[in-house]
Simulated scan of single mutants.
Amino acid sequence: MTVHVPGHPATSRPRPVGRHPIASDDSVPHSRRRGAPPEEGEFVRPLNRRQVDDRMWELDELYERTSSCAPREPANVGPSGRDRCTAFQQRLADHVRRPGFELLVAEAVGPSGARDLTACAYGFPVHRAGSWWRDLDGHLPEDLLDVAAVDGLFAIADILVERRVRTQDQTRDWNLARRLQKRLLRAHTGAVGVTLVDRCDMESYRALQAWGWRPSPAETWATSHFVSHRLLVLR
């Protein structure tokens, strides 16, 4: 599943920033803990901005692999798969420069000990005066704008997971998408998560709801005539 936050094309490579600590409870695979289900076997860890730049080709392959699970546009309608991947790279390169940017990857350890990238999620704080709200001005609940004014909102811009994560055990705490989004918000005590999903992408919308996301209280039938994305909230 892919959840997109629109962004402007990047014109330069991201710069490295400071360290990103790895929380102790995610430093070993969950499958090695007593009583943990095998679905928790992936390592979850952050990448700093230089690592994101160095591993862009892997993230691009992950995007191509996971986005292929989503409903496809009819032939000759919409961008090609390569164009979508290029847009993903540009979007990520743009977002990685935002203050407070954080990106997590999940990696599964194979029999040889090599780690394979299986999922990714990233986001950044959003502010009331920022550009993230672009097309949603006038269609947002006042309480969210108040939270944004005190730096209490964190936008989860993309969640890239395999189909099994979207369709199996969605409500379990160890569902990989739930683990990723919870970990992103954990460093921002009390923060409210927000994300945008294309209004036509019902598969992603249903998956997000199964992972605990809820429509914005301002979501109305009339709103759909003015904006192309739904705003979802995770508290």
Rank of each mutant, 00 (worst) to 15 (best):
E42D: 15
E42C: 11
R45D: 02
P46M: 09
P46D: 08
P46H: 07
L47P: 01
R50M: 04
R50W: 08
R50K: 13
V52G: 01
D53Q: 09
D54N: 09
R55A: 10
E61I: 11
L62K: 05
E64R: 13
R65W: 11
S67A: 13
S68A: 13
S68L: 10
C69S: 14
C69Q: 15
A70I: 08
R72D: 13
A75Y: 10
A75G: 08
N76S: 14
G78N: 03
S80H: 13
C85F: 08
C85G: 14
T86V: 15
T86L: 12
A87I: 13
F88Q: 04
Q89L: 04
R91S: 15
R91I: 11
A93L: 15
H95E: 03
P99D: 10
P99W: 00
F101H: 02
E102S: 13
L104D: 05
V105S: 03
E107M: 10
A108H: 12
A108Y: 15
A108Q: 12
G110A: 14
G110E: 13
G110K: 13
R115E: 14
R115F: 05
D116S: 14
G123V: 08
P125Y: 00
V126R: 02
V126Y: 00
H127S: 06
H127D: 03
R128P: 00
A129E: 05
A129D: 12
A129S: 14
A129P: 00
S131E: 04
R134A: 14
R134L: 11
R134F: 06
D135E: 12
D135M: 09
G138H: 07
L140V: 12
L140K: 04
P141N: 09
E142D: 11
L144V: 09
L145Q: 04
L145G: 02
D146P: 03
D146C: 08
V147G: 05
A149F: 02
A149K: 06
V150M: 08
D151Y: 01
D151I: 04
I156E: 02
A157Q: 00
L160D: 04
V161S: 11
R166I: 06
Q170D: 04
T171W: 06
R172T: 15
W174A: 09
N175D: 04
A177M: 07
R178D: 01
R178T: 06
L180D: 01
